[in-house]
Each structure stands twice: as C-alpha cells, then as structure tokens.
C-alpha cells in the first residue's frame, strides 16, 4: 500500500493553482487536506500524474463573517470550523455536524473544500450546505463563478467543478431569525460514515415548520432533499398525524441504493426513523 509515482507541485496562490491545473490538464489532481485522497493514493486507486498541493494558499483557509453571512474557505480545516465561535453562532447546523465527522486527528487536517469537492454522498458537510442554501465559489481559467449547493453535487464523487477549476469556498446566507436546525446521523461507530443521516433547517413558529430543507445523506448519489416530507409538514402543527404523513412521504422522496453495511430496505427504514426523531425534536423545541 505505497502510493504510485506522481509529480508534485505547490500552488502559492489561486492564480498559480489555476495555471498549474491548466498546464497539467486532466492528469492533475488537487491535494487539499488529503484525508480522502491520500488513502486512495495508498490503495493505488487514484493515479494522478501530478498533484497540485493547494495547502500553501493561506487565503483559502479563512472563515469570514459579514452582513451577507458566513464564508468558509476551501482550506478551512474541520477543526477550525468545529471550534469557530462565528460558525457556532451563525451556522449551528454546521457546528452540530462537525464533531460527527471522523476523529480529531482527521479533523485537524481535513478541509471543508475537500469534503465538498470529493462529492461523497455519505458525507455530512454537503448535506449541510444544501440545507443551508450555500453558494459555492469556484475559480477557473475564465474567472470566478458561483454554483448553489443544490446544483453543485451531481452524483457519486461528481460535482459541478469542471476540470481546471478550483473550489474557493462556500458563502452561507446570514442566519435568519426563527430558523432552527437539526442534525442526526446513524453510524455503527462514532466517526464512521453514516448509514443514514440528515441535516435539516427550517423556520419554526409556534410549533409549525415552514420553508423546511430536510436533506439526507448516504441514501443516494448525492445529498437528497426530502421535498415530499417538507410539503407534508409545511405550516402544519407537528402532531403525530403530520409526522406520520411526513414519514410516509419519504417513500417518494428517497430511493436509497444499498451498500456494504445497510441494504436499501434498511436505509429506507432508518431514514424514516431519523425523520420521525428529528421532527419530534422540532415539535418539542423550546424557544421558538
């Protein structure tokens, strides 16, 4: 399990990274935190000719708050997000997800951008980004562009990033009053990838939810927004009948493929359990 041979380039700036990616073409691979890429190299599954290491680009590691909201740079380490007071205050959903992601030593090195750019459908952060309506900022040879999170994740390990592009980070909208987040995942062991998980964000007013974004992960090829569930609860009292209807609506929302640790049937069942538990938490939420 030793990595195959490759060349290595350090990008000193975003412009330099774009230039290096252009120079080396499709055989180049961006190296950020390396917590997923390095295992794939050691397994000899990833075979890039050139690694473009973006870690020297210090600007990309920033977490910035302004009136537009929070911008999390692509190179922000999971641990920095986890321990950020701004994130805790502005993005409680992200703050709730962070301790569930792997383990302390992985979070010290793994990056926000890496988690998102990999496009692993079982990852936590992509679901949070979709639930919160984040916009991904992308740099490329033709300049910068933005892609909403809901359109960024395109399939298993597939995103809207084009060859030669670099993810700069994500802009999260400012926290809106009345909105409450919930995060829940089921893992066999703490820090494992989820069997099923969900990130939810919606307006809670007098026990009724509206504008709910209920986003599952590990049940499809990308984060899956449970639209039927959201419609079933929209503006209704969160009583047993509403929650039953919401869970029933998942039948059309989800079509989870099975994997090694959970069959399709099990995932579907667990998705229902999660929905029920999270909606019950909303129903008993204090302070809204």
């Amino acid at each position: 399990m030793k990595a195959p041979s490759f060349s290595y380039e350090r990008a000193e700036s975003v412009a330099n990274a774009i230039e290096l990616l252009a120079r080396h073409g499709p055989d180049a691979q961006i190296l950020a935190g390396g917590q997923s890429l390095m295992p794939m190299l050691n397994f000899r599954v990833a075979r890039p000719a050139v690694l473009v290491d973006i870690n020297p680009i210090a600007d990309l590691a920033a977490i910035r708050v302004d009136k537009k909201g929070v911008f999390i740079g692509a190179l922000a380490r999971h641990a920095d997000i986890e321990h950020s007071g701004e994130v805790a205050e502005q993005l409680p959903l992200v703050a709730a997800a962070m301790p569930q992601i792997a383990h302390p030593a992985i979070r010290n090195r793994g990056t926000f951008g890496g988690s998102c750019a990999l496009g692993d459908p079982a990852a936590e952060l992509p679901a949070c980004c979709v639930a919160l309506g984040a916009e991904f900022r992308i740099a490329g040879p033709k300049g910068e562009r933005s892609v909403p999170a809901a359109k960024f994740f395109a399939g298993v390990y597939t995103t809207a990033l084009e060859p030669g592009e670099l993810l700069l980070g994500a802009q999260f909208p400012a926290r809106q009053p009345g909105y409450v987040s919930r995060f829940l995942e089921l893992t066999r062991r703490h820090g494992d990838y989820a069997m099923v998980g969900a990130a939810a964000h919606g307006r809670l007013d007098k026990g009724r939810l509206s504008d709910l974004k209920f986003v599952y992960f590990a049940v499809g090829d990308r984060p899956i927004m449970a639209m039927g569930l959201a419609r079933a609860v929209e503006g209704k009292p969160l009583d047993a009948a509403t929650i039953d209807a919401a869970v029933a609506a998942l039948k059309d929302d989800l079509d989870p493929p099975g994997d090694l640790h959970a069959s399709s049937v099990l995932k579907r069942h667990l998705a229902g359990v999660i929905a029920r538990r999270m909606l019950n938490e909303y129903a008993t939420h204090k302070g809204a």
Partner: peptide, 11 residues
C-alpha cells in the same frame, strides 16, 4: 478498516 468494523473506544 472502514469496511471491516473493529471495536473502537466509544461503543
């Protein structure tokens, strides 16, 4: 070791 699950401390 992500697929073959050995006992870890928390559980």
């Amino acid at each position: 070791m992500a697929d073959y699950l050995v006992p870890m401390p928390v559980e």
